[in-house]
Design a protein around this nucleic acid. Structure first.
Length: 464
RNA sequence: GGCUCGGUGGCAGAGUGGUUAUGCAGCGGAUUGCAAAUCCGUCUACGGCGGUUCGAUUCCGUUCCGAGCCUCCA
């Protein structure tokens, strides 16, 4: 049995992960609202939880991973009005873009990717039940969740209601009994998407969808609930409140999800990447400049709970690493490998690091240390190293082949025949010790944007 | 005001009550027609102040600094 330790945001400490059902680990992570291009912050969440799921699959076999898509929301409606484009057309478009971008980052599709609009009926019945149980009240056509009925509200984000400054950033609606009350159902205005309900045509509040979809698809309690740190409060807190009240587990804060995990923010110049600051980087823009794997490794380069400062430097560092390991894999592709990982000490060390709350940096350093003097190793040791690279690569989703295609495509933009001819001429010159000519050809190639390297028996070239 | 999380060498980033993290960059050397790659060697560190201890970067206290949340957010 594995000894995975994860940091549980509810308990605020690292704890041993003990699955509810080891035969099927159930994970839910809050996905994006699809009204704009995926940004690096969206990508970090997707990559972090994809990596977690990959690790859990390695350890336990079956994992059911759910990550939702919010496709009905005020922000989408605003966007729709602004762009004069239907809500459906916007959400379809950005849903597809999100999945395409994530695929480029080697993010495996979740087992379920439910859309909020597919669960409106279920949400209505859940809200009705909350209303019946007196956890909700009506105010100006809205159905509000009554936070005062839930004593342990705030337990996830360790905050007391009375100590908060209400309306610190967002104005508190006047019809709320308590500032923390949140909307379960709101009436739609003319022209806005609406569903029939016992409270008239309207749409669900944001916090209801995740609780309903997680409950419907995974059933409660499930193992891990995740998302970005900014969802901890109020979104996850509100999900928890609804679930506990819905199921009647009023004091059982682990009756919804057994563990909670939150990834840290992506920052720019140490400030949170956010729309209001206008420092958002889009995944699609970086995919034009870097291999998806490079972006992925960059997103994993800091521990998942720490802030990740997004910079050219982190990208070039990741690029170096990707290139280095891909090269090693390429050079040793003829080694006959066995599948069994048992007895491979390097794999064992990597696993130890990953089991400690997914310490990817440490696991990579294990590889680095072994690769350093690889040429001195015998064949068995080399096999172990290659196996370890593949093992780690599989879990963190890098060093795979295929994505290098982007680089290859770039190379096709050049006239290969011409380059090869020049290289041939230069090598002849070198053979004849006509180094002036050889150097001139090198210069010529550099002017074309081509850098050449003489290796033992061939000259290779790449775009600068 | 409340609540979180941080502060490690030029940069990124782990970790540890005593002994090299690791990578990139730098420096010295080997190799090379040159260059690159590679290899060998090597320097730079734990925010401040107290305390516990034989010994603290690590534990405790305190202080300074930074980031985030307190109903838009991944």
């Amino acid at each position: 049995m594995s000894k995975l330790k994860i940091y549980d945001s509810m308990q605020c400490k690292k704890v041993l992960f003990e699955p509810i059902d080891p035969k099927n680990i159930r994970v839910y992570a809050c996905g994006p609202t699809v009204y704009d291009y995926a940004h690096i912050g969206n990508a970090r969440m997707a990559v972090v939880f994809d990596t977690l799921v990959r690790l859990l699959r390695e350890l336990y076999g079956k994992v059911t991973y759910v990550s939702n898509i919010t496709d009905i929301d005020d922000k989408i409606i605003e966007r729709s009005k602004k762009e004069k484009e239907s809500v459906l057309s916007i959400t379809n478009k950005f849903f597809k873009i999100y999945n395409d971008d994530m695929e480029m980052l080697n993010v495996m599709k979740p087992d379920y990717q439910p859309k909020a609009t597919e669960f409106v009926e279920k949400m209505i019945s859940a809200i009705s039940k909350l209303e019946e149980k007196k956890f909700a009240y009506q105010a100006e056509g809205n159905i509000m969740f009554d936070v005062s009925k839930f004593n342990i509200y705030g337990s996830l984000s360790s905050r007391k209601r009375e100590e908060q400054i209400a309306g610190r950033r967002v104005k508190v609606a006047s019809f709320k009994k308590n500032p923390e009350d949140f909307v379960l159902w709101k009436p739609s205005k003319d022209g806005e998407p609406a569903w029939d309900s016992p409270w008239g045509p309207g749409r669900p509040g944001w916090h209801t969808e995740c609780f309903v979809m997680a409950t419907e698809i995974l059933s409660t309690p499930f193992d891990i609930h995740g998302g970005g740190l900014d969802l901890k409060f109020p979104h996850h807190e509100n999900e928890l409140a609804q679930s506990c009240c819905y199921s009647g587990n009023l004091d059982k804060k682990n009756s919804y999800a057994k563990y909670w995990m939150h990834n840290g923010f992506v920052t720019v110049d140490s400030e949170k990447m956010s729309k209001s600051l206008g420092n958002i980087s889009l995944v699609k823009d970086f995919l034009k400049l870097y291999d998806g794997e490079v972006l992925r490794l960059a997103l994993l380069s800091a521990h998942y709970r720490s802030p990740l400062n997004w910079s050219e430097q982190v990208l070039s560092q990741s690029k170096n690493r990707i290139t280095k390991y891909k090269k090693i894999l390429e050079e040793h592709k003829n080694l006959s490998m066995i599948d069994d990982v048992k007895g491979n000490l390097i794999v064992h060390q990597i696993e130890e690091a990953l089991l400690d709350d997914i310490n990817i940096s440490k696991s990579l350093s294990v590889l680095d240390a072994n690769v350093k003097d690889m040429h001195k190793k015998d064949e068995t040791e080399k096999k172990n190293i290659i196996q370890a690279i593949k093992y780690l690569g599989k879990i963190i989703g890098v060093f795979s082949n295929g994505i290098t295609a982007t680089l290859k495509n770039e190379e096709k933009l050049f006239n290969e025949e011409e380059i090869n001819l020049l290289i041939k001429k230069r090598n002849e010159a070198r053979k004849n010790k006509d180094f002036d000519l050889a150097d001139n050809i090198r210069k010529e190639l550099i002017e074309m944007g081509i850098e050449i390297k003489d290796q033992s028996n061939e000259t290779i070239w790449k775009k600068v």
